[in-house]
Design a protein around this nucleic acid. Structure first.
Lengths: 209, 209
DNA sequence: GCTCACATTGTACTTTTGGACAGGTTCCGG
DNA sequence: CCGGAACCTGTCCAAAAGTACAATGTGAGC
Protein backbone atom coordinates (compact mmCIF):
# COMPACT_ATOMS: atom_id res chain seq x y z
CA UNK A 1 0.00 0.00 0.00
CA UNK A 2 1.25 3.47 -0.82
CA UNK A 3 2.42 5.83 1.91
CA UNK A 4 2.03 9.57 1.39
CA UNK A 5 3.48 12.06 3.87
CA UNK A 6 1.87 15.48 3.88
CA UNK A 7 4.29 18.00 5.30
CA UNK A 8 5.15 21.60 4.46
CA UNK A 9 8.59 21.09 5.98
CA UNK A 10 9.75 17.51 5.48
CA UNK A 11 12.64 17.66 7.93
CA UNK A 12 12.08 14.01 8.82
CA UNK A 13 11.96 12.94 5.19
CA UNK A 14 14.89 10.56 5.60
CA UNK A 15 13.23 8.74 8.48
CA UNK A 16 10.03 8.40 6.55
CA UNK A 17 11.81 7.06 3.49
CA UNK A 18 13.78 4.72 5.68
CA UNK A 19 10.50 3.29 6.97
CA UNK A 20 8.91 3.19 3.49
CA UNK A 21 11.47 3.45 0.65
CA UNK A 22 8.76 4.08 -1.92
CA UNK A 23 6.86 6.70 0.03
CA UNK A 24 5.85 10.07 -1.43
CA UNK A 25 6.30 13.36 0.42
CA UNK A 26 4.06 16.25 -0.61
CA UNK A 27 3.97 19.81 0.74
CA UNK A 28 0.21 20.03 1.02
CA UNK A 29 -3.10 18.35 0.41
CA UNK A 30 -3.55 20.18 -2.89
CA UNK A 31 -0.81 18.06 -4.50
CA UNK A 32 -2.29 14.87 -3.13
CA UNK A 33 -4.12 13.58 -6.23
CA UNK A 34 -0.86 13.43 -8.21
CA UNK A 35 0.87 11.55 -5.42
CA UNK A 36 -1.89 9.06 -4.81
CA UNK A 37 -2.67 8.58 -8.49
CA UNK A 38 -6.01 6.87 -7.88
CA UNK A 39 -4.69 4.09 -5.66
CA UNK A 40 -5.11 3.19 -2.00
CA UNK A 41 -2.70 5.06 0.27
CA UNK A 42 -2.15 5.92 3.92
CA UNK A 43 -1.99 9.67 4.44
CA UNK A 44 0.48 10.75 7.11
CA UNK A 45 -0.47 14.24 8.26
CA UNK A 46 2.34 16.23 9.83
CA UNK A 47 0.75 18.70 12.26
CA UNK A 48 4.12 20.21 13.08
CA UNK A 49 4.14 22.35 9.98
CA UNK A 50 0.51 23.39 10.07
CA UNK A 51 -0.72 26.54 11.81
CA UNK A 52 -2.89 25.40 14.72
CA UNK A 53 -5.93 27.17 13.35
CA UNK A 54 -5.71 25.23 10.12
CA UNK A 55 -5.13 21.76 11.53
CA UNK A 56 -8.77 20.80 11.89
CA UNK A 57 -9.49 21.88 8.33
CA UNK A 58 -6.52 19.98 6.94
CA UNK A 59 -7.47 16.86 8.86
CA UNK A 60 -11.05 17.15 7.69
CA UNK A 61 -9.90 17.46 4.10
CA UNK A 62 -7.55 14.52 4.47
CA UNK A 63 -10.26 12.30 5.96
CA UNK A 64 -12.65 13.39 3.21
CA UNK A 65 -10.38 11.78 0.61
CA UNK A 66 -11.56 8.42 1.95
CA UNK A 67 -8.01 7.27 2.51
CA UNK A 68 -6.93 6.20 6.01
CA UNK A 69 -5.21 9.06 7.83
CA UNK A 70 -2.53 8.91 10.51
CA UNK A 71 -1.72 12.11 12.39
CA UNK A 72 1.85 12.89 13.40
CA UNK A 73 2.06 15.45 16.19
CA UNK A 74 5.16 17.29 17.43
CA UNK A 75 3.62 17.60 20.89
CA UNK A 76 1.24 14.70 21.38
CA UNK A 77 -1.54 15.15 23.93
CA UNK A 78 -4.73 13.44 24.92
CA UNK A 79 -7.00 16.31 23.93
CA UNK A 80 -5.41 16.66 20.51
CA UNK A 81 -5.41 12.89 20.02
CA UNK A 82 -9.06 12.72 20.89
CA UNK A 83 -9.95 15.48 18.47
CA UNK A 84 -8.00 13.85 15.65
CA UNK A 85 -9.56 10.42 16.17
CA UNK A 86 -12.96 12.03 16.50
CA UNK A 87 -12.47 13.63 13.12
CA UNK A 88 -11.78 10.25 11.58
CA UNK A 89 -8.04 9.65 11.88
CA UNK A 90 -7.09 5.99 12.17
CA UNK A 91 -3.83 6.63 14.01
CA UNK A 92 -2.08 9.19 16.12
CA UNK A 93 1.62 9.24 16.91
CA UNK A 94 4.66 11.41 17.57
CA UNK A 95 6.20 13.22 14.63
CA UNK A 96 9.54 11.69 15.58
CA UNK A 97 8.34 8.09 15.67
CA UNK A 98 11.02 5.56 14.68
CA UNK A 99 10.85 3.88 11.25
CA UNK A 100 10.01 0.56 12.90
CA UNK A 101 7.08 2.12 14.69
CA UNK A 102 5.87 3.81 11.52
CA UNK A 103 5.77 0.40 9.85
CA UNK A 104 3.86 -1.07 12.80
CA UNK A 105 1.31 1.69 12.56
CA UNK A 106 1.02 1.23 8.80
CA UNK A 107 0.36 -2.48 9.25
CA UNK A 108 -2.35 -1.83 11.83
CA UNK A 109 -4.08 0.80 9.71
CA UNK A 110 -3.83 -1.24 6.49
CA UNK A 111 -5.73 -4.01 8.22
CA UNK A 112 -8.54 -1.80 9.48
CA UNK A 113 -7.30 -1.23 13.02
CA UNK A 114 -6.59 1.85 15.12
CA UNK A 115 -3.18 2.81 16.41
CA UNK A 116 -2.44 5.17 19.27
CA UNK A 117 0.31 5.47 21.86
CA UNK A 118 0.17 2.88 24.65
CA UNK A 119 -2.30 3.74 27.37
CA UNK A 120 -4.21 6.30 25.36
CA UNK A 121 -7.11 3.99 24.63
CA UNK A 122 -7.40 3.05 28.28
CA UNK A 123 -7.48 6.69 29.27
CA UNK A 124 -10.17 7.39 26.69
CA UNK A 125 -12.22 4.47 27.88
CA UNK A 126 -11.83 5.44 31.51
CA UNK A 127 -12.95 8.98 30.79
CA UNK A 128 -15.93 7.97 28.73
CA UNK A 129 -17.15 5.35 31.16
CA UNK A 130 -19.68 7.69 32.68
CA UNK A 131 -21.46 8.35 29.43
CA UNK A 132 -21.48 4.83 28.01
CA UNK A 133 -21.72 2.60 31.03
CA UNK A 134 -23.84 4.32 33.66
CA UNK A 135 -22.85 3.82 37.24
CA UNK A 136 -24.61 0.73 38.54
CA UNK A 137 -26.15 2.68 41.42
CA UNK A 138 -27.76 5.32 39.27
CA UNK A 139 -28.96 2.81 36.71
CA UNK A 140 -30.49 0.64 39.43
CA UNK A 141 -32.21 3.61 40.99
CA UNK A 142 -33.49 4.88 37.64
CA UNK A 143 -35.30 1.58 37.39
CA UNK A 144 -37.20 2.51 40.53
CA UNK A 145 -38.74 5.55 38.88
CA UNK A 146 -42.15 5.23 37.26
CA UNK A 147 -42.39 6.14 33.59
CA UNK A 148 -43.87 9.55 34.40
CA UNK A 149 -41.22 10.27 36.98
CA UNK A 150 -38.56 9.37 34.44
CA UNK A 151 -40.04 11.78 31.95
CA UNK A 152 -39.84 14.58 34.48
CA UNK A 153 -36.32 13.63 35.48
CA UNK A 154 -35.18 13.62 31.87
CA UNK A 155 -36.52 17.15 31.44
CA UNK A 156 -34.57 18.30 34.46
CA UNK A 157 -31.51 16.54 33.09
CA UNK A 158 -31.63 19.01 30.21
CA UNK A 159 -32.14 22.07 32.42
CA UNK A 160 -35.87 22.64 32.13
CA UNK A 161 -37.75 24.64 34.77
CA UNK A 162 -40.90 23.35 36.47
CA UNK A 163 -43.03 25.61 34.29
CA UNK A 164 -41.36 24.29 31.13
CA UNK A 165 -41.77 20.68 32.23
CA UNK A 166 -45.44 21.28 33.04
CA UNK A 167 -45.98 22.71 29.60
CA UNK A 168 -44.06 19.92 27.87
CA UNK A 169 -45.91 17.12 29.66
CA UNK A 170 -49.31 18.84 29.77
CA UNK A 171 -49.59 18.80 33.56
CA UNK A 172 -49.54 21.50 36.25
CA UNK A 173 -46.46 22.75 38.04
CA UNK A 174 -47.89 21.23 41.17
CA UNK A 175 -47.77 17.80 39.62
CA UNK A 176 -44.24 18.36 38.45
CA UNK A 177 -43.23 19.27 41.99
CA UNK A 178 -44.93 16.16 43.34
CA UNK A 179 -43.04 13.95 40.93
CA UNK A 180 -39.77 15.75 41.70
CA UNK A 181 -40.15 15.24 45.43
CA UNK A 182 -40.59 11.53 44.92
CA UNK A 183 -37.67 11.43 42.50
CA UNK A 184 -35.41 13.21 45.01
CA UNK A 185 -36.27 10.61 47.63
CA UNK A 186 -35.80 7.65 45.32
CA UNK A 187 -32.47 8.83 43.90
CA UNK A 188 -31.16 10.26 47.14
CA UNK A 189 -30.47 13.72 45.75
CA UNK A 190 -31.17 17.03 47.44
CA UNK A 191 -32.45 19.25 44.65
CA UNK A 192 -32.87 19.63 40.93
CA UNK A 193 -29.26 20.64 40.31
CA UNK A 194 -28.03 17.40 41.80
CA UNK A 195 -30.74 15.50 39.98
CA UNK A 196 -29.61 16.97 36.67
CA UNK A 197 -26.02 15.98 37.41
CA UNK A 198 -26.98 12.50 38.57
CA UNK A 199 -29.03 11.92 35.44
CA UNK A 200 -25.89 12.73 33.46
CA UNK A 201 -23.72 10.52 35.64
CA UNK A 202 -21.75 13.38 37.15
CA UNK A 203 -20.73 13.07 40.79
CA UNK A 204 -21.63 15.80 43.23
CA UNK A 205 -19.72 17.05 46.24
CA UNK A 206 -22.55 17.09 48.66
CA UNK A 207 -24.89 14.33 47.50
CA UNK A 208 -26.48 12.73 50.50
CA UNK A 209 -27.40 9.09 50.84
CA UNK B 1 2.71 -15.49 16.75
CA UNK B 2 0.64 -18.18 18.45
CA UNK B 3 -3.14 -18.05 18.43
CA UNK B 4 -5.05 -19.62 21.33
CA UNK B 5 -8.85 -19.86 21.28
CA UNK B 6 -10.48 -20.20 24.68
CA UNK B 7 -13.89 -21.79 24.26
CA UNK B 8 -15.88 -24.31 26.26
CA UNK B 9 -17.75 -25.27 23.11
CA UNK B 10 -15.46 -24.98 20.10
CA UNK B 11 -18.24 -25.27 17.50
CA UNK B 12 -16.34 -22.89 15.22
CA UNK B 13 -13.08 -24.79 15.60
CA UNK B 14 -12.81 -25.45 11.87
CA UNK B 15 -13.13 -21.79 11.00
CA UNK B 16 -10.51 -20.88 13.55
CA UNK B 17 -8.10 -23.51 12.28
CA UNK B 18 -8.79 -22.39 8.74
CA UNK B 19 -7.68 -18.89 9.71
CA UNK B 20 -4.69 -20.14 11.72
CA UNK B 21 -3.72 -23.75 10.92
CA UNK B 22 -1.45 -24.01 13.95
CA UNK B 23 -3.85 -22.51 16.45
CA UNK B 24 -4.64 -24.13 19.78
CA UNK B 25 -8.19 -24.47 21.14
CA UNK B 26 -8.55 -24.86 24.90
CA UNK B 27 -11.75 -25.32 26.94
CA UNK B 28 -10.85 -22.79 29.61
CA UNK B 29 -8.26 -20.43 30.99
CA UNK B 30 -6.99 -23.03 33.41
CA UNK B 31 -5.40 -25.02 30.57
CA UNK B 32 -3.83 -21.91 29.09
CA UNK B 33 -0.26 -22.31 30.39
CA UNK B 34 0.12 -25.61 28.57
CA UNK B 35 -1.19 -24.16 25.32
CA UNK B 36 0.89 -21.01 25.44
CA UNK B 37 4.04 -22.75 26.67
CA UNK B 38 5.77 -19.55 27.70
CA UNK B 39 5.55 -17.83 24.31
CA UNK B 40 3.72 -14.82 22.98
CA UNK B 41 0.15 -15.57 21.91
CA UNK B 42 -3.11 -13.84 21.08
CA UNK B 43 -5.91 -15.07 23.32
CA UNK B 44 -9.27 -15.29 21.57
CA UNK B 45 -11.97 -15.31 24.24
CA UNK B 46 -15.27 -16.83 23.16
CA UNK B 47 -18.02 -15.18 25.22
CA UNK B 48 -20.65 -17.37 23.66
CA UNK B 49 -19.84 -20.31 25.92
CA UNK B 50 -19.37 -18.32 29.10
CA UNK B 51 -22.18 -17.60 31.55
CA UNK B 52 -22.81 -13.82 31.48
CA UNK B 53 -21.99 -13.46 35.16
CA UNK B 54 -18.57 -14.97 34.62
CA UNK B 55 -17.51 -13.07 31.52
CA UNK B 56 -15.98 -10.13 33.32
CA UNK B 57 -13.94 -12.43 35.54
CA UNK B 58 -12.74 -14.51 32.60
CA UNK B 59 -11.77 -11.42 30.66
CA UNK B 60 -9.96 -10.01 33.67
CA UNK B 61 -8.03 -13.24 34.08
CA UNK B 62 -7.20 -13.37 30.39
CA UNK B 63 -5.92 -9.78 30.36
CA UNK B 64 -3.91 -10.49 33.51
CA UNK B 65 -1.82 -13.03 31.61
CA UNK B 66 -0.24 -10.08 29.82
CA UNK B 67 -1.08 -11.53 26.43
CA UNK B 68 -3.17 -9.49 24.00
CA UNK B 69 -6.82 -10.52 24.20
CA UNK B 70 -9.47 -10.41 21.49
CA UNK B 71 -13.07 -10.92 22.53
CA UNK B 72 -15.49 -12.83 20.28
CA UNK B 73 -19.10 -12.12 21.05
CA UNK B 74 -22.18 -14.02 19.77
CA UNK B 75 -24.27 -10.86 20.08
CA UNK B 76 -21.97 -7.87 19.66
CA UNK B 77 -23.12 -4.59 21.16
CA UNK B 78 -21.68 -1.19 21.98
CA UNK B 79 -22.09 -1.51 25.73
CA UNK B 80 -20.46 -4.93 25.82
CA UNK B 81 -17.69 -3.80 23.47
CA UNK B 82 -17.00 -0.81 25.64
CA UNK B 83 -16.79 -2.92 28.75
CA UNK B 84 -14.41 -5.40 27.13
CA UNK B 85 -12.07 -2.72 25.79
CA UNK B 86 -12.21 -0.95 29.12
CA UNK B 87 -11.04 -4.14 30.78
CA UNK B 88 -8.03 -4.27 28.47
CA UNK B 89 -9.09 -6.24 25.41
CA UNK B 90 -7.29 -5.23 22.24
CA UNK B 91 -10.04 -6.37 19.91
CA UNK B 92 -13.73 -7.07 19.81
CA UNK B 93 -15.51 -8.96 17.05
CA UNK B 94 -18.36 -11.29 16.17
CA UNK B 95 -17.97 -14.96 17.15
CA UNK B 96 -18.76 -15.88 13.57
CA UNK B 97 -16.13 -13.65 11.97
CA UNK B 98 -14.69 -15.00 8.72
CA UNK B 99 -11.17 -16.50 8.67
CA UNK B 100 -9.94 -13.56 6.60
CA UNK B 101 -11.23 -11.13 9.17
CA UNK B 102 -9.70 -13.11 12.02
CA UNK B 103 -6.33 -12.81 10.30
CA UNK B 104 -6.80 -9.06 9.82
CA UNK B 105 -7.57 -8.68 13.50
CA UNK B 106 -4.56 -10.78 14.40
CA UNK B 107 -2.28 -8.61 12.28
CA UNK B 108 -3.60 -5.42 13.88
CA UNK B 109 -3.24 -6.74 17.40
CA UNK B 110 0.21 -8.23 16.79
CA UNK B 111 1.39 -4.77 15.79
CA UNK B 112 0.02 -3.02 18.85
CA UNK B 113 -3.20 -1.71 17.37
CA UNK B 114 -6.86 -1.96 18.32
CA UNK B 115 -9.49 -3.68 16.25
CA UNK B 116 -13.21 -3.17 16.48
CA UNK B 117 -16.11 -3.33 14.06
CA UNK B 118 -16.37 -0.39 11.67
CA UNK B 119 -18.00 2.65 13.17
CA UNK B 120 -17.59 1.55 16.77
CA UNK B 121 -14.66 3.83 17.45
CA UNK B 122 -16.52 6.81 15.99
CA UNK B 123 -19.50 6.07 18.17
CA UNK B 124 -17.28 5.83 21.23
CA UNK B 125 -15.55 9.07 20.37
CA UNK B 126 -18.83 10.83 19.69
CA UNK B 127 -20.21 9.76 23.03
CA UNK B 128 -17.17 10.75 24.99
CA UNK B 129 -16.68 14.09 23.29
CA UNK B 130 -18.30 15.98 26.11
CA UNK B 131 -15.94 14.72 28.76
CA UNK B 132 -12.64 14.92 26.94
CA UNK B 133 -12.75 17.85 24.57
CA UNK B 134 -14.91 20.70 25.80
CA UNK B 135 -17.03 22.40 23.22
CA UNK B 136 -15.10 25.33 21.79
CA UNK B 137 -17.87 27.74 22.73
CA UNK B 138 -17.95 26.81 26.38
CA UNK B 139 -14.19 26.73 26.61
CA UNK B 140 -13.96 30.19 25.03
CA UNK B 141 -16.59 31.57 27.36
CA UNK B 142 -14.97 30.00 30.41
CA UNK B 143 -11.94 32.09 29.55
CA UNK B 144 -14.09 35.19 30.03
CA UNK B 145 -14.72 34.35 33.67
CA UNK B 146 -12.47 35.83 36.30
CA UNK B 147 -10.69 33.42 38.61
CA UNK B 148 -13.16 34.00 41.41
CA UNK B 149 -16.12 33.53 39.09
CA UNK B 150 -14.62 30.27 37.89
CA UNK B 151 -14.29 29.04 41.44
CA UNK B 152 -17.96 29.73 42.06
CA UNK B 153 -18.94 28.11 38.76
CA UNK B 154 -16.95 24.99 39.57
CA UNK B 155 -18.77 24.65 42.86
CA UNK B 156 -22.11 24.87 41.08
CA UNK B 157 -20.86 22.32 38.58
CA UNK B 158 -20.74 19.87 41.46
CA UNK B 159 -24.18 20.75 42.80
CA UNK B 160 -23.32 23.09 45.69
CA UNK B 161 -25.88 25.54 47.02
CA UNK B 162 -25.15 29.24 47.52
CA UNK B 163 -24.74 28.71 51.24
CA UNK B 164 -22.28 25.87 50.68
CA UNK B 165 -20.30 27.92 48.16
CA UNK B 166 -20.18 30.88 50.55
CA UNK B 167 -18.82 28.65 53.26
CA UNK B 168 -16.30 26.96 50.98
CA UNK B 169 -14.90 30.25 49.62
CA UNK B 170 -15.24 32.26 52.84
CA UNK B 171 -17.56 34.89 51.35
CA UNK B 172 -21.21 35.81 51.92
CA UNK B 173 -24.12 34.38 50.02
CA UNK B 174 -24.67 37.83 48.58
CA UNK B 175 -21.26 37.74 47.00
CA UNK B 176 -21.94 34.30 45.59
CA UNK B 177 -25.15 35.59 44.06
CA UNK B 178 -23.35 38.53 42.56
CA UNK B 179 -20.77 36.30 40.93
CA UNK B 180 -23.47 33.92 39.69
CA UNK B 181 -25.44 36.71 38.05
CA UNK B 182 -22.34 37.80 36.16
CA UNK B 183 -21.54 34.21 35.22
CA UNK B 184 -25.06 33.66 33.89
CA UNK B 185 -24.68 36.70 31.65
CA UNK B 186 -21.22 35.77 30.41
CA UNK B 187 -22.09 32.13 29.64
CA UNK B 188 -25.59 32.83 28.36
CA UNK B 189 -27.33 30.44 30.72
CA UNK B 190 -30.57 31.07 32.60
CA UNK B 191 -29.97 29.55 36.03
CA UNK B 192 -27.72 27.36 38.11
CA UNK B 193 -29.05 24.10 36.70
CA UNK B 194 -28.08 25.13 33.20
CA UNK B 195 -24.76 26.45 34.49
CA UNK B 196 -24.00 23.10 36.11
CA UNK B 197 -24.82 21.30 32.88
CA UNK B 198 -22.81 23.74 30.76
CA UNK B 199 -19.80 23.36 33.03
CA UNK B 200 -19.99 19.64 32.40
CA UNK B 201 -20.46 20.12 28.64
CA UNK B 202 -24.00 18.86 28.57
CA UNK B 203 -26.40 20.58 26.16
CA UNK B 204 -29.65 21.96 27.46
CA UNK B 205 -33.01 22.17 25.75
CA UNK B 206 -33.76 25.73 26.53
CA UNK B 207 -30.36 27.41 26.73
CA UNK B 208 -30.66 30.91 25.37
CA UNK B 209 -28.13 32.65 23.15
C1' DG C 1 -3.52 61.18 40.88
C1' DC C 2 -7.05 59.14 38.11
C1' DT C 3 -9.55 55.46 35.99
C1' DC C 4 -10.99 50.92 35.55
C1' DA C 5 -11.75 46.15 36.66
C1' DC C 6 -12.38 43.08 40.21
C1' DA C 7 -14.08 41.59 44.57
C1' DT C 8 -17.02 42.19 48.22
C1' DT C 9 -21.23 43.45 50.66
C1' DG C 10 -25.72 45.75 52.00
C1' DT C 11 -31.01 46.25 51.64
C1' DA C 12 -35.04 45.08 49.29
C1' DC C 13 -37.79 42.67 46.27
C1' DT C 14 -39.61 39.08 42.93
C1' DT C 15 -39.52 34.56 41.28
C1' DT C 16 -38.76 29.85 41.69
C1' DT C 17 -38.30 25.84 44.22
C1' DG C 18 -39.53 22.48 47.48
C1' DG C 19 -42.14 20.59 51.46
C1' DA C 20 -46.48 19.83 54.21
C1' DC C 21 -51.07 18.52 54.24
C1' DA C 22 -54.93 17.33 51.79
C1' DG C 23 -57.85 15.29 48.25
C1' DG C 24 -59.50 13.05 43.77
C1' DT C 25 -59.61 9.48 39.65
C1' DT C 26 -58.16 5.37 37.16
C1' DC C 27 -56.43 0.89 36.69
C1' DC C 28 -55.04 -3.54 38.19
C1' DG C 29 -54.51 -7.55 41.05
C1' DG C 30 -56.33 -10.37 44.78
C1' DC D 1 -65.64 -5.47 45.68
C1' DC D 2 -61.53 -3.70 47.89
C1' DG D 3 -56.98 -2.06 48.45
C1' DG D 4 -52.92 -0.20 46.59
C1' DA D 5 -50.12 2.08 43.20
C1' DA D 6 -49.79 5.60 39.91
C1' DC D 7 -51.07 9.97 38.44
C1' DC D 8 -53.04 14.30 39.06
C1' DT D 9 -54.20 18.66 41.58
C1' DG D 10 -55.29 22.14 45.32
C1' DT D 11 -53.87 25.55 49.19
C1' DC D 12 -50.37 27.24 52.05
C1' DC D 13 -45.92 28.23 53.52
C1' DA D 14 -40.81 28.46 54.03
C1' DA D 15 -36.48 28.45 51.86
C1' DA D 16 -33.61 29.27 48.15
C1' DA D 17 -32.53 31.52 44.10
C1' DG D 18 -32.06 35.45 41.32
C1' DT D 19 -32.48 40.51 40.24
C1' DA D 20 -32.28 45.58 41.13
C1' DC D 21 -30.04 49.37 43.06
C1' DA D 22 -26.44 50.88 45.73
C1' DA D 23 -21.90 51.23 47.94
C1' DT D 24 -16.78 50.48 49.33
C1' DG D 25 -11.92 48.87 49.04
C1' DT D 26 -7.88 47.25 46.43
C1' DG D 27 -4.59 46.89 42.87
C1' DA D 28 -2.89 47.75 38.34
C1' DG D 29 -2.10 50.63 34.44
C1' DC D 30 -1.73 55.14 32.38
Amino acid sequence: MKQVFVSANPGLRERWLQAFPGARVVPGLETLPGAVNGSRAILWLDLGTTPPAQRADDLRAAVATGQPVVVMSPVPGDAEAFQCLNQGAMGYCHSGAAPEQLREIATVVEHGGFWMPPGLMQRFLALSSRVIAPQPRVERELNELTSRELMVAEQVAHGASNREIASALNITERTVKAHLSTIFDKLGVRDRVQLALAMNNIPTYSTVN
